[in-house]
Simulated assay, not measured.
Amino acid sequence: MRIAAEGGQELPSLETHARYREIEARMRRHAEAEAADLVARQAEAQQRAAQRAAAHAEAEAQAAIERERAAAEAAARQAVACADCGRERSAGLCEACDHRRQTEALIREAGLLAATWSADPSDQVAVAAVTAEVRTAVEAAIAAEWAQFQKITDPAALKAAGPDAVEGAAAHNAFLTAESAAAEYRQQALVMLGRSEDAEAEARKAYATELSKPWHQALPDSDDAQRAATEAATQAQTRTAEHLLAMRLEQLRTQAHPEPIRPAPWSQRLPELAARPLDGETLEVIA
């Protein structure tokens, strides 16, 4: 319709039949141009689709290679014997030995947690006494839990689960008991450090600061003001206890595993040695 209207306006001098023929020619050329444009757009769309399909296929192939590599690495790791007990095909560490390692780490952590508040962190003798006491207590709890587990478990069914089932169950039981004990010692340490002078001083400071705020000054004894001040004091006390616990734990861990002393490199030591005077014996030997 647009082409016919344009033709009527642009070709007013042509006869009717000539004008119609020109309009038809223009419409034909327009249709051909649209058809060519459609074909070009379809070809471009097909090319983009082919590119996407090729990229997808390449990604799938790469993913398959990565899966195969990961499976091969996992199989290689699985074939490695346990580093602790030598059990074959244990990926370097069997589950029971892994639990034993974690249990030992948790027992040590529980001892350090108890020492953060019950011993002077700089007194290694006192720290050692506390950690030894905690170890004895946790190991006794592990033994008691295992005895209780054996009472409620059918030994025949446990043995039927496999030759290593008893050993694995004992290691897992020890890990769970040590994990629970470490959590309890952490909570106890936070409570005791929260009663320290530093924590109580921070709590008093936060309490007074909250009451000094403008919206509490008019009625400092009101329930809302007292509730807000108490909450601020509790939060400050908790934050201080957590900070003290982190600091003391870091100190205790550093003392338990001190940094190795590395000698200075020769480039720094040689000038110092060269500057030292030689004694008589050495001078005689050189002469």
Rank of each mutant, 00 (worst) to 15 (best):
M192T: 05
A144L: 10
P265I: 02
E22Y: 00
R19D: 06
P155V: 14
P258K: 04
R101K: 12
A229V: 01
A208K: 13
G7Y: 02
I152R: 06
H216T: 04
Q226W: 05
R227L: 02
T282M: 15
H99S: 10
L14H: 01
Q251W: 09
A63N: 11
E88H: 02
L273K: 10
E68S: 09
L190M: 12
G111I: 03
G86A: 07
V191T: 00
G86K: 04
A183H: 10
E272Y: 05
E197G: 04
L219Y: 09
H257L: 05
Q255C: 10
A160I: 14
A274V: 15
A156R: 08
A43D: 15
A43V: 00
A143I: 04
T230R: 15
I65Q: 14
A170R: 09
P258N: 05
A181S: 12
A57P: 06
A275G: 03
A161L: 13
L11D: 14
L11C: 10
S90E: 06
Q235N: 12
R239H: 08
R19E: 09
L245I: 06
E24T: 12
V39K: 10
V127A: 14
D123M: 13
E242R: 15
L113T: 00
L113W: 07
A75D: 05
R248A: 02
Q187L: 12
A156E: 10
E210K: 14
Q78A: 11
M247P: 00
E197A: 12
I65N: 11
T131W: 03
K151W: 02
S180D: 06
E44C: 03
G194K: 04
R2D: 14
E133F: 04
R2N: 11
A79S: 03
L249Q: 05
D279N: 15
D279R: 10
H17L: 14
A119M: 11
L11A: 13
A18G: 08
T209L: 02
Q226C: 06
M247R: 11
A182D: 00
E10V: 11
T131I: 07
A189D: 11
A183C: 05
Q237T: 00
A199N: 08
R204H: 09
R227W: 01
G280S: 11
D154W: 01
V191Y: 02
H17S: 12
E167Y: 12
E210Q: 14
P265C: 02
A76C: 04
A81R: 13
I142H: 06
I23S: 00
R101F: 02
D224E: 13
R2Y: 03
P263R: 06
E200P: 00
I152P: 00
E95I: 01
Q251D: 06
S122Y: 03
Q235Y: 06
D164H: 07
A143Y: 09
Y207L: 04
A233N: 05
E200N: 07
T240V: 03
G92S: 03
K151N: 05
A119G: 12
L158A: 10
A61H: 04
L245V: 05
R101I: 03
A50Q: 13
T136P: 02
S180N: 07
A157E: 08
A147S: 03
E6T: 08
A132H: 07
Q124R: 10
G111D: 08
E6A: 13
